[in-house]
Each structure stands twice: as C-alpha cells, then as structure tokens.
Nucleic acid binder design. Structure first.
Lengths: 274, 274
DNA sequence: CAAATAGTGTCTCTAAGACAATATCAC
DNA sequence: GTGATATTGTCTTAGAGACACTATTTG
C-alpha cells in the first residue's frame, strides 16, 4: 500500500501532452409565435441559443455556448454551469451527444468538446430574455434532407439566416454522424454538432422521451403534440396521438380558457413508477 | 462578459489545467462453448476482454483495455488503435458509450475517459488468443437485476469470478446510468462503465442493430438468434425471430453440414440501400 | 429409426393509422 | 350561429406472440 502511495507521488502526468476539454451546449426551447387570428392556436418552432463570438477565432460568428471543464467537476456539471451562466435558467434536462475530437476543429489548439442537448422550458426562459442587442440570441431551426441527399440546417432570426449544408457520414447503432459541406457561417464544427444533436433529439422525441421537458408542468395534449411535431417534423392524427400518450399523462381538473374555441383539459406528466 | 471570458480562453490556454483523456474499450465477442452431445448446437456466451494491471494503481486487478488520447487523432481513432494494440484484430464496429469524468475516478490524477463498445468477430479473435498466462483474457459476462433491485455484474473465467454490484442512478432519454456499490475487484470505475455499456448494447440488440457484428459474413439464422438472445438475455420463438429478421438478411445457396441434424441455410446481411 | 435442429403455416391479440362524428367555447 | 379546437368512437390493417406441424440430416 505504501508502495502504491510512493508510485502515485512519483507519477508524473506532465510528461504527456493533454487536450483542453470543453462542454458545448445545444440549448433548445419551443417558441410560440403569435397568431393573427384570435381563434387560432399559436404555432410553435424549435429554437436554439447561439452566442455571437466577440474575439478571434470566428470573431463575429455565431457559436454554441460552452466552456472549459474545470478540475473537480464532471462534464455534466460543467455543462449545467455553462447553461446557467449563459441563461440564468436551470435546464430541465441534459443529454450527452458525444465527444467531438477531430484534430483541427478549433484553431486555438487541441480542444475537444463533449456536446449536450439541454432543454429549457419556454416559460422560464422568456422571463430572462428579450434584449435585442445581446450577444446571446435564440434562432429558429429548420433541419431537413433535401432532394440531393444533403442535410440543410437553417438557423434564422429576424433578418438573419444561416444555412449550413451537411452530408451523412454514417449511421451506426441508430446514431447518425455528419460532415460539414458548408458551415453557413457557424463557428468551429458547430454545424456538425447541431445536426448530430437534432438527429438524436428527433429519435427520442418519437418515443415521447423528451417532449415533456419543453412545456410547463401543466399542458394540454395539443400543446404536447405540437412539441413532438415541431421536433420530429412528422404529423400524426390527434386521435392517435392521444391514444399513445394516454399512459404517460394524468389529467387534472383544470382547463384552458379564453381561447376562442372549446377549452382543453390540462394534463401533468405521469410519475414514473418508482 | 462572455466576451472577456472567450478572450482570456483564447490567449491563455496554457494557464488552465487540463485533464488527461483516455479511451476505454469494452471489447466483446461471442464465445461458443463446446457441447458434450455431438447432435446439440453449441451454446454461446458473451465475453469481455480484460487486462490484468501490471502496475499501480490497482496492481493485479483486472481492468478494461484503454489508453491515452494522442495529439492528432480523434477519440475514435484512439479507441481503434488501442483495440488493435491489445488484440491484433480490427474490430467490426465501435459505439461510443459516453464520457466518464467523475473527479477521483482515477487515483493518478485528473483523467477522464470516453468508453466504447467494440464488437469483435469470434472467428478472427480465436486465431490470436489462447495463451493462458497472458495478462489479457476473455471473461464470460452475466449481468442482471436481482430481487432487491441491484444490478449484479459477474465476470467469470475458469476458477476466477468477479461480482460487482451496482445501483441504477437514473434513466434519461433511454440511457441508464449506474453507481458502484461494490466494484467486485475491478479497477477504477470500470464496473460502472461495463454496466452502462451492456445496457446500451442490449437496447440496440433488440432492434438487430449490432448482432451481425459478432458473426462471420455467412451465418445461420439460428446462430443470429443465439447472438441476440445471449446479449439481451431474452428468448423469442424461432418462427417469430425469422419473420422479423427476414427483411435484413439475404439467403445464399450454401448450407451447414455434418451437424447431426438437418443442415441450415447460410445467410448474409442484406446490404442497406445506398 | 431416433434425436436433434431447420423451417413453414396460421390463429389470436394488440397497436397503429385513418376517418367520421360529436362537444364546447368566444365572438 | 360560425369558426375554431377538443375529444371520442370505430373500422381496417400490420405486426407480435404462441403454437402446431412438417422437413432433413447423422449416427
């Protein structure tokens, strides 16, 4: 045992070169767009938080929020810390997307990054945001395969639109990896990270894994269905959605009101059996 | 303010402490056990490669193979390099399990590890292995939930059996995380890593994602079903397995022979539409 | 022929998808 | 009442699970 102590004391890790490690955050929320018609429900879109870079490299480009892993914390704690620093909001959930370690991905040097999808509830975030001059802004997402087999990632906000083009590198074990054909002006390899994250998110949203995280505690089934359709970009008939989701929600005795049409019952997520 | 942080990060990277990064490998193959009865098909078990540690810390304990990430390579390349160094075999597939970064997980210092499941084909590996005195050995795996809700991971080989006990920390987005209650003598946090990896593997084996990787190019449907059942620990009726797999395989006009019973048609994996 | 595995046919039940019909509110 | 969404019912179809049955080889 004292043998081991001696060994550990003399162990010199400084002999090896080491990378800097960061956590990059794909912070997502659902954005409700006001409607012109008082009767119509709001449409929703998926919205991503980007930070305008103030310094080199990629000065002035939009980039994912993120930061360096500190000693004494896990990469998940680092991710949570970064989200709270950027948004002042505690995220509802966190999902690791993978480690991006391609040499040269960061011009500053050897920096590898674990990406996380973080879901924020719209209600919480909107209390905090709104300053148009801020360097942190929410962009609407559109992400789809075009007729040539390329994936087109569009991030838009007001008059700004960035369009990145990606190719599918491979799909293995249900996970899809991308290569960047055109970064669309996004910093670093962030277009690739976002595409990978959205693909994972869509796969999980199909099984209702993450759709609750976008909504407040009480919600209508139509809202829930909207979230799923916004994420997956696939529509289902309301009757069928309700049937499938019924085992995962509990009804309350509250209703929406003042919507210009029949009020909807509010539901809460069913507590998973413990 | 995030401006200033970025600025400092880009210019003073060497002032920050950085972790060592490793790739740890859960190398798996299917082991066929010889049968006493000439008519009976071979039984199979899932088998994991462990390395006996020659130095401190955990000297003499069994540990996952792995090694440090070098500059100029991706973490996937690092994983592949380590597998080939340990086994002289090129793995069929590689699946990232996640980054394990808990402070204190390695007594040598700040070392974080990305774990990978790597599947090796039995036929290839057996040409290389067999030396009983070697520090690298294959252990049979048994992994199940016991009546108290604990997960029991048993790794056995000849007269050696290690039993680790784990608790389920949480399941989020279809991914299960574990805590170690008793490492069973395994080095570092490797019991946790193995449990996490096996859970991922089982989930994917249900959908036939990885079962082909364990077999040679040509196989019988019974062999394929055995692989799935060995991994998932769930049995299905042969008729139903065949129906479900039929879209994923192409039959050849070759048959097994000399088995003491009706010969089986050999199949190959159907090429995925490109 | 016996033992063992290979392979097929079909019944039932459940879940998914499609669609029609009814309910309820704000104006 | 009109326009909108909310909610329920049911028909059809696809797939999973169960089970019975046939086919083929080696010793």
């Amino acid at each position: 045992m004292s043998d081991e102590k001696t060994f550990l004391n003399s162990y010199n890790m400084n002999d090896y070169e080491r990378p800097s490690v960061t956590a990059d955050i794909i912070a997502l929320k659902i954005r409700s767009q006001d409607s012109e018609n008082y009767r119509r429900n709001q449409k929703t879109s998926l919205s991503l938080l980007l930070i305008k870079r103030g310094g080199h490299p990629f000065k002035g480009c939009w980039a994912l929020p993120g930061g360096f892993l500190n000693p004494g914390e896990t990469i998940e704690q680092c991710a949570l810390r970064e989200i709270e620093e950027e948004t002042s909001v505690k995220p509802v959930s966190l999902m690791s997307i993978g480690l991006f370690s391609e040499p040269g991905r960061d011009p500053r040097g050897w920096i590898i990054s674990n990406a996380f999808v973080s879901v924020l509830s719209e209600a919480t975030v909107n209390q905090q945001y709104g300053d148009d001059a801020d360097d942190a802004q929410w962009f609407d997402i559109s992400f789809d395969k075009d007729e040539n087999g390329f994936y087109r990632l569009e991030l838009s906000r007001r008059d700004t639109t960035m369009t990145a083009l990606l190719t599918e590198e491979k799909t293995q074990f249900g996970r899809t990896y991308f290569n960047i054909k055109d970064s669309g002006g996004l910093a670093f390899d962030h277009a690739k990270i976002i595409a990978t994250a959205l693909t994972s998110l869509r796969n999980e949203a199909k099984d209702f894994e993450n759709i609750f995280d976008f909504l407040p505690e009480k919600f209508t089934l139509t809202q829930l269905q909207n979230v799923q359709e916004t994420i997956t970009n696939v529509s289902v008939l309301p009757a069928n959605f309700r049937r499938k989701i019924s085992g995962l929600v509990t009804e309350t005795d509250e209703y929406t009101k003042g919507a210009g049409h029949r009020p909807a019952k509010l539901y809460v997520r069913k507590q998973t059996g413990r």
